[in-house]
């Protein structure tokens, strides 16, 4: 598995898929192969935290993980597919009035890869819908994304609606976007703010400990 892990960490996409096919053909345990992917993801995450890897590598990693999963899945039994214990339920949306999704999609991918059950409601999502879906999904954490300053107001509205629904004590709210800071976080009433996905994942993992 060392070769596969190395290839994935070094972003050698073709090599990763070639090795996966080879291992499956040789009859290696598919769960073992999948763990190789996970081990590579851990190393890639570390490199991101150490400023060695950046968004291109996160996107490539997600892409390799998806392609690898597609190859491995048919070889797994249902119980093996379901067995992974999730760290928590994460509901995500770009708030009403904002249609930007690059940051949101990256955090969705990263949270999924890091063992969270993710529900992504898309962009320009009204506050009432976010709250209703959070209730239905039994979200532990709600992630609100927005690039524009015009997203500050809708973020604040969502937090108020969460309070009105009596869920504020049971759910954490994290906001993410290029123009966020502590000042906006307090204005919105969120529990945390981030401008990059890996910090967001770390914060959520911290909460779920």
């Amino acid at each position: 598995m060392k070769l596969l892990i190395e290839a994935m960490v070094e972003m050698a996409e073709d090599k990763v898929l070639e090795l996966t096919r080879q291992y499956l053909k040789e009859g290696k345990d598919p769960v073992e192969i999948f763990r190789g992917y996970q081990a590579a993801m851990v190393e890639i995450g570390k490199r991101f935290e150490n400023n060695l890897y950046f968004i291109p590598e996160l996107i490539m990693a997600g892409e390799m993980m998806n392609a690898g999963s597609e190859l491995i899945k048919p070889h797994l039994s249902q119980s093996e597919t379901d067995s992974e214990k999730k760290k928590g339920r994460f509901l995500l949306a770009t708030v009403e009035g904002d249609i930007h999704d690059i940051g949101k999609n990256i955090i969705a991918m990263m949270m999924d890869l890091n063992g969270f059950e993710v529900r992504d409601l898309g962009v320009d999502v009204p506050g009432d819908k976010i709250v209703a879906k959070a209730k239905e999904f039994k979200a532990d954490i709600i992630g609100l994304s927005g690039l524009l300053t015009l997203a500050f107001g809708p973020m604040k509205d969502v937090v108020e609606k969460i309070s009105e629904a009596g869920m504020r004590d049971t759910v954490k709210v994290i906001i993410g976007g290029a123009q966020l800071d502590q000042q906006v976080c307090e204005h919105v009433g969120a529990d945390a703010w981030v401008t990059d996905a890996v910090k967001g994942v770390s914060q959520c993992e911290e909460w779920m400990k």
Partner: peptide
């Protein structure tokens, strides 16, 4: 698009 171009950096 950002996602595609970021992958092009490797592909």
């Amino acid at each position: 698009g950002t996602t595609q171009l970021m992958m092009d950096l490797y592909r």
